[in-house]
């Protein structure tokens, strides 16, 4: 009897959890990702982050965003030493690199900081170079109609910055 009562309580608690959890999933999907009460909001956000419910599931929507690439130019005594794109070891790692570039492109506020971090990350591997230029290019893909009319895709410079080691 005691065991049965214990089980009942466990089931009720689990049902309560399920309702609460799925409500949070739904709220996040609806774009409600913060609460007005400060402490409650912190708890809510922590739960969302830990459980993975902090997403709107809007992958590739409403439209497919622009494509981009980052080119690094290294200088040795004011002369161009090398110009390259970062290469990852496999497709999965490459997708992650482009996810990071996506932030670099989309979030203007953190763009300079990210550029600085990338610059010093790259310069670390080339100790004989003292200057680096980072260029973010956007891929201008024509629409299908434009493509049929012989329009070609091209890369357009979107952002450029330089860093120099003192």
């Amino acid at each position: 009897m005691h065991h049965f009562k214990k089980m009942e309580k466990k089931i009720i608690l689990f049902i309560a959890f399920a309702v609460l959890h799925l409500s949070i999933v739904l709220l996040n999907a609806l774009g409600i990702n913060s609460l007005t009460q400060k402490t409650l909001n912190k708890l809510y956000l922590t739960y969302c982050t830990l459980s993975g419910t902090d997403t709107k599931y809007g992958y590739f929507s409403p439209n497919i965003s622009d494509d981009f690439d980052v080119v690094y130019t290294l200088y040795k005594r004011e002369m161009v030493d090398r110009k390259f794109r970062l290469k990852m070891k496999n497709e999965e790692c490459r997708q992650r690199l482009y996810t990071m570039y996506n932030y670099f492109y989309r979030i203007e506020e953190s763009r300079d900081l990210m550029a600085r971090s990338l610059a010093f990350g790259v310069l670390k591997n080339y100790p004989d170079c003292s200057k680096i230029k980072i260029e973010l290019f956007l891929y201008q893909l024509p629409t299908t109609r434009q493509y049929q009319n012989k329009a070609k895709a091209y890369w357009e410079l979107f952002y450029s910055t330089e860093f120099e080691l003192n």
Partner: peptide, 30 residues
């Protein structure tokens, strides 16, 4: 919830309704 809101997000734009989304997702270098 994942699929419903994934689909709902797509109809808010134009790319998925006019076919450009498929074109862009298979033709962009990424």
């Amino acid at each position: 919830i994942v699929y419903f809101f994934g689909g709902l997000g797509k109809i808010k734009g134009t790319h998925w309704l006019n076919g450009e989304a498929i074109w862009r997702s298979i033709e962009q270098p990424q």
